[in-house]
Amino acid sequence: MVFDPHTPQDGRTGPSDRQPTSLAGAVAEFETAVATLHDAGGGERFDAALRRLGGLLGPAGEQESAAVGPRLASLLPDTPPFQRAHLAMMVGACVERGADPVACADHILAGLREALTGALLLLERWKETGDGGPDDLPDPDGDDPDRDSPGRAHARIEEPGRLDEWHAHRAVIGWWTLSLWQRAAFALYTHAAVRRTARESGVTDVLTGLIDRYSGDRHDLKGLRYLAAALDDEPLLVLHRPTGTGYLLRMDGLTDNFQLHTLLAEVLIGGGHLPGTRPAPEVVTLSRTGRVDGRHRVTATGAFNLVAPDGGWIWNEGMPEDVPVVDGVRTLVLDPQPYERSWAAGRFVEEVPGELRLERVLAPAEAASRLASAAPAQGFGQAVR
């Protein structure tokens, strides 16, 4: 995340804007401004303090940025809604520079939930109140939230007695700030500790459920959806139908099934357990820690057909969470490919390194027993994406 110090203000400066200070001093000043927001002149002081904070955070070093991240996160609930989203972006920038991601997570993920809920509400009411298609939606990036676009949207979706003024306000705020909350949450979810605590608490299930309900191209939530679903320290039972063998592996930071497919081939074929062609070293590196060089395309090729124990296909375009849990462990069957596959090597979420480790080879009797309960793969025409 490259932090943009712009905040949704009119750009005017006052005398206090010309007072240079340290980042720590700006945070202390902002804390005071939040506490006195409702006093006489509090709004003007708050706006000036937020502008100064944004201006100083941009060029700040990693150590001082990391130190103030949790302090800024704690101020989110008391910050006005539109400015809150910009403050969340500042917290995300601090996390990228080393701030404790878990200490910053609660209010960021709560803000994302609120923004998603609001955006979905706006979409629902927009369909009910207009004749236009998706292109008729307000542009949350192109329409200035300080001007009258949110006001017009509010007037359109408000329905007294059914959708009261507060819910309409909530919908407008969510729609105009969702992209900022998405970017802040993305910075947090790149950390395994946040993914683990959010998954264990049920927060991730709520957020991914809301994201799955969203449709449209005004907000790009796909990267966050894949990232939030990444599996860490997750066992994976793999059964290879042609050889009757089985393997217990463990996944860390895997975000997409193209990545999983490549690493399965590297560990099982490259490790000498299964026949086939080992992936090229560069393909494997890009699936683990490497970054894609946009100047040339590295091609990965398929080695298996990924199949669920009930016979349904597990598509490369999906996520490892698509692999079903059977008897307490995600279980995947490998079949021969029905046709050749190739794709651009890499990880869907490059910010997260991925790994797949072999823990043990199943005894022949155990593998045979597991395979005996697995259904044959469905035909191509029956496969459900």
Rank of each mutant, 00 (worst) to 15 (best):
V194G: 03
G61Y: 05
T13N: 13
L122F: 11
W176D: 01
S369Y: 02
R347G: 03
E96N: 14
T255E: 00
T289R: 13
E321S: 13
A377E: 09
V323N: 00
G69D: 00
R370V: 04
V352N: 00
L274W: 08
L112W: 04
T262Q: 07
A280S: 12
L249I: 12
R347Q: 05
A345K: 00
Y214Q: 07
A35H: 09
A49Q: 06
G294I: 07
S369E: 15
L237C: 12
V2N: 15
E128C: 08
R218M: 10
V284N: 02
A229M: 13
H191M: 03
R199F: 03
P336M: 06
A85T: 05
L274K: 03
P320R: 03
L227K: 01
G379K: 11
H86G: 04
L120K: 04
E62T: 10
K127A: 15
R195E: 01
H154Q: 13
L53K: 03
P138N: 08
G253A: 07
A280D: 15
W176R: 04
R347I: 03
G41M: 10
R183W: 04
I211H: 00
L248A: 11
R341K: 11
Q337C: 08
E158G: 02
W126S: 10
L356Q: 02
V102F: 01
S65M: 10
P309A: 08
G216F: 02
L227S: 08
A368P: 02
G25M: 09
R52W: 01
V68F: 05
R291C: 08
G244H: 05
D322G: 02
W176S: 02
R199K: 12
L109P: 02
A115E: 00
Q19F: 11
T117R: 14
G290F: 06
F258T: 04
G55Y: 05
Q259H: 11
D293M: 09
T7S: 12
L112H: 01
E124R: 15
G43I: 06
A187N: 04
L163K: 00
L57C: 05
L236W: 06
L371Y: 07
E158T: 12
P376K: 09
R18S: 12
G294C: 03
R385M: 14
V238C: 08
G118L: 05
L120M: 06
D141Q: 14
D4R: 12
V329L: 04
L237M: 13
V349H: 01
V349N: 05
D47S: 10
E29C: 08
A367H: 04
R152K: 13
P101L: 05
D233L: 06
G130C: 11
F348N: 04
S287K: 00
L50M: 14
F304N: 01
L236D: 00
L362F: 10
G202D: 10
D212T: 09
A103H: 07
A171C: 06
L178R: 02
D212H: 08
D164V: 11
E96I: 01
G311P: 06
A168G: 13
C104P: 05
V34I: 12
S287M: 05
E124M: 11
L263S: 04
